[in-house]
Simulated assay, not measured.
Amino acid sequence: MNAAVPENAARYTHAELTAAAEIVHRGMAPTACLRWPLLDAALGCTAWVKHENQTPLGAFKVRGGLVYFERLTQRAPDVRGVICATRGNHGQSVAYAASRFGLSSTIVVPHGNSREKNAAMRALGAALIEHGSDFQEAREHAQQLAAERGLHLVPSFDDALVLGVASYALELFDAAGPLDTVYVPIGLGSGICGMIAARDALGLATQIVGVVSSGAPAYARSLAAGHVVAHEVTTQLADGMACRVPEPQAFEIIRRGAERLVDVGDDEIAVAMRLAFETTHNVLEGAGAAATAAALQERERNAGRHIGVVFSGGNIDRPVYAGVLAGTV
């Protein structure tokens, strides 16, 4: 993997990213990009935090939903209902954006999904269906229901989703300036692909480091193999990263544009969640703390450097978070 994709291989243009960001900012304000002295000290470098945990839905996914539904309603004005599969944040984005555009939404989640994420999706107007033991099984069921019920299936990865998500990366680089490295968690891949897209469109030399859960290493295994391979998911804390089967398009963008991937375990993520609370008083879900966990793991590498870490989401069930803070999770 290379630190930067050659300019002529950029996946999206700056004009496309800017147009998508304008759509996003009609629906939400830019999120904060801040430095926290105690976090700088803990990470041993200058660290800019992109606070995607502070979007209207508590996670970065809302950005992609706004752009996707803007485009959907333009190209298919007769659509009345949509369906998707999720572990939570993508589903909230779909429910939120669907309601803004007057569409009904059905969301499929696996059994045992976050109770509070489920409640949030229902509160946003979605009809919730529980099916399967993991995201992949929920995804396959959503595909089946879409065909049976004549619903538009909203994918978990799509150009419009990436373009919308990239707006957070544009905001980061605008606030922090050129950075040596940015750490981005990987679920299905829209977050890191958006960061790569912005980096390339701006012509920066920033290294993009993807972060996967050691309990969901499908992307890391795929990059090592040179092709997409599935891997079982065992993480109990990073549900937003619980990908069993990588998205081929995301895999290709990551393969070309990421510097490397870092694996972090649930124990490292729990440490990072506590650190984020102690140093910034921000609540993070497991995936939301993964970038910080990776930066902690690479503390010596980053000495004297300027880095970015993405707080990608803060939607976590209260009992789980209480256990993390108490050190019992």
Rank of each mutant, 00 (worst) to 15 (best):
V5F: 08
A9E: 15
A10C: 11
A10I: 05
H14A: 05
E16F: 00
L17D: 01
A21F: 00
I23M: 02
V24R: 13
H25Q: 13
L34D: 15
A41C: 07
T46M: 01
A47K: 10
K50Q: 15
H51G: 04
E52K: 15
N53Q: 12
Q54T: 15
L57G: 11
K61M: 00
V62E: 11
V62N: 09
R63M: 05
E70Q: 14
E70M: 08
E70S: 13
R71H: 15
R71T: 12
T73A: 11
T73S: 09
R75V: 12
D78L: 02
V79W: 05
I83W: 00
C84V: 04
T86W: 11
H90V: 08
G91N: 07
Q92G: 13
A98T: 04
S105W: 04
T106R: 15
V108Q: 11
P110F: 03
H111K: 14
H111N: 14
G112W: 11
K117L: 03
N118F: 02
A120V: 00
L124D: 11
L124H: 12
G125Y: 09
G125I: 09
G125F: 04
L128D: 06
I129M: 03
E130N: 14
H131G: 03
E137D: 10
A138W: 06
L145D: 01
A146H: 09
A147D: 01
R149K: 15
V154S: 06
L163H: 06
L163I: 00
S167G: 05
S167A: 07
S167R: 02
Y168T: 01
D174W: 09
A176T: 14
Y183D: 12
V184T: 13
G189Y: 10
G191H: 05
I192W: 04
G194E: 00
M195Y: 02
A197D: 07
R199T: 00
T206N: 06
Q207S: 15
Q207T: 13
V209C: 02
G210N: 12
V212Y: 01
S213H: 09
S214R: 11
R221W: 06
A225W: 01
G226Y: 05
E232S: 14
V233G: 08
T235D: 03
T235H: 11
T235E: 01
L237F: 01
L237D: 08
G240C: 07
M241H: 10
R244E: 13
V245Y: 12
P246F: 05
E247Y: 14
P248A: 09
F251W: 07
I253C: 06
R255N: 12
R255W: 07
R256T: 11
V262F: 01
D263W: 03
D263E: 13
V264Y: 05
D266P: 04
L275Y: 11
T280P: 05
H281C: 04
N282E: 13
L284F: 05
E285N: 10
E285H: 11
A287H: 09
A287D: 08
A290F: 00
T292H: 08
A294W: 02
L296T: 07
Q297G: 01
E298H: 13
N302P: 00
A303K: 12
I307P: 06
V309D: 10
S312V: 06
G313P: 09
G314H: 12
N315W: 08
I316P: 05
Y321M: 03
A322E: 13
V324I: 07
A326R: 14
V329I: 11
